[in-house]
Simulated scan of single mutants.
Amino acid sequence: MTGTLITVAATGAEADKGRVPALPVTLDELTETAAQCRRAGAAVIHVHIRDDDAKPTLDVGRLKDTVAALRAATDLVVQLSTGGAVTDGFDARLAVLDAAPDACSLTCGTVNFGDDVFANPWGFVKDLYLLTKERSVVPEFELFDFGHIAALHRLLGEFGPPAGGHVHCDLVMGVPGGMPGDAATLVAAVQALPGGATWSATGIGRTTLPVLFGALSAGGHLRVGMEDTLTYSRGRPVTGNAELVQRAADLASLAQRPPMTPAQAREFLGIGPPA
C-alpha cells in the first residue's frame, strides 16, 4: 500500500461538551461528523459514545445503535474504543465487543494519564485479546509507552496473530505520563515494533503536528481528531473533526501518499466487508 490510513477519533471521553460545543456527542452529531470526515479523507472512525447528559458511557445498547447508524451513513471502518473512560471497569470494557464492530482499540499496558491512571493490567489485556480473536474483531494495538511495545511482543508470542492476521499499532504520543511526542521517540518506537507490523501515530495536544509530520516522513499512518486535540493552531480552536482530517489528507497527498479509501483500509487491516 502506498496510501495513508487516516483514522478520526472524533469524541473521546475527556472533553466537556459545555466547553467544546463542536464536540460530537449525540448519535446524529456523530453520524454527520463521520460523513464529513469520510468526504475529507478518513477511512476509519474511532468511537467513544456519550449518554443523554453528554457523559462517557459504554452502554452496549447505545454502542450497537451507534455501530448500526455509522454503517448506514458511511462505509467507514467502525473501530470502537475498549478504553472508555479511566473510571470504566474491565467487564464493561470487554462487553464493548458485544456491539460487533469491525475493529477495536486494545491498549497494551497501564499508563499515567495526566492526573489519572489508565489501567490495563496483563490479565485484562490477555482476556481482551483472546476475545477479539474469538469474535473476529480486528484489534488496533494502542501503545502509550515502550513497556507497551514489550507487552505486545509477549501477547503475540503467547497467543499468535490477531484476527485478520495483520498487526497494526497506534503510537499514542504526548500524553502526560506516556512517551513524548517528538521525532526521536517516534523513530525509536517504530524500530521496537514486531517485524511486519504497520503503525499509525497520534500526537496529543501541542504534539499533533510534530507527530503528524514525523509519521508521514517515516512511512507511518495517521490518527487525528477532537479526542486528541481541540486546537487547530495557536489560539484557534478546532471548528470540527473534518478540518483535522482535511489537513491530514492534504499533507498525506503532498507526501505522495494520498488517503486510503475505506475499502483499501479493510484490505490493509485484514477486515472483511461491512456487515
Rank of each mutant, 00 (worst) to 15 (best):
A10C: 06
T11S: 11
A15S: 11
D16Q: 10
K17G: 02
G18M: 07
R19H: 13
V20R: 00
V25E: 04
E29V: 10
E29M: 05
T33F: 06
A35C: 03
C37Y: 02
R39C: 08
A42L: 03
A43P: 03
H46M: 10
R50G: 09
D51H: 09
D53H: 12
D53V: 10
K55D: 08
K55H: 10
T57N: 02
T57A: 00
D59F: 04
V60Q: 00
G61N: 09
L63P: 01
V67Q: 02
A68P: 04
L70P: 04
A72E: 15
T74R: 03
L76Y: 04
L80W: 05
T87A: 12
D88C: 07
G89M: 05
A92T: 09
R93V: 13
A95F: 09
V96M: 11
D98S: 12
A99Q: 03
A100W: 11
C108E: 03
N112H: 14
F118C: 03
N120P: 07
P121W: 10
P121Q: 08
G123A: 15
E134N: 08
E140A: 06
E140F: 08
F141R: 00
F141H: 05
E142D: 13
E142W: 02
F146S: 12
G147M: 05
H148Y: 04
R154S: 13
R154D: 15
E158W: 06
G160N: 08
A163W: 09
G164A: 12
V167I: 14
C169G: 03
V172C: 07
V172H: 02
G177I: 07
G178C: 10
G178L: 04
A183L: 15
A188C: 06
G196W: 11
A197D: 06
S200L: 14
T202V: 15
L209N: 01
L209I: 14
S217I: 14
G219E: 12
G220R: 05
G220M: 08
H221N: 15
H221T: 09
L222E: 03
L222S: 05
V224I: 06
V224D: 01
V224K: 03
M226I: 04
T229D: 05
T229C: 11
L230N: 01
S233A: 14
S233E: 14
V238M: 06
Q246L: 15
R247W: 13
A249R: 04
L251I: 11
S253H: 07
T261P: 05
A263M: 11
Q264E: 15
E267D: 15
G270V: 08
P274Y: 11
